[in-house]
Amino acid sequence: MSDLLDLYQEVILDHNKRPRNFGALESPDREATGYNPLCGDQLVLDVALDGDGGAIKDIRFRGSGCAISKASASLMTEAVKGKTIAESEKLFERFHELLTGDPSVRGEAGAELGKLAVFEGVREFPVRVKCATLAWHTLQAALEKAEAPATTE
């Protein structure tokens, strides 16, 4: 059960049970929907930008998904709130490296990731990587004002 405990760390279980920033924003500047067609998970993201549109002022999410995707969305909203768009894009890159990259470089990435490092265990479960990245793909779509819904495929 040890690798399962690496995957389902306390922080992840906690954010699954009590997701932060869950719900809708009253007047979002951006909204995007993300799907994982493999499992039917669906996520809607509302983003409010600051005055000059360069940073994420507020962010909320809703939808249905597994513990990994829900916790990832919850932790992502915490991590990117207040960050500039460029900073949040950089963070997604780092996060993606954590899940799929070479384990030897994780120390460096880990430092920037803060709490998001709890998803390191996902690396051992390759089929679950898409669950962890759905929220981030959706955020990317929202920031790029994409017409089509984001998808993990």
Binding site: C39, A67, K70
Partner: peptide, 14 residues
């Protein structure tokens, strides 16, 4: 209740 099928699938798999 309270557990998504995907998470169940992963735990059963192990």
């Amino acid at each position: 209740d309270g557990v998504h099928p995907h998470d169940i699938g992963t735990i059963l798999d192990r």
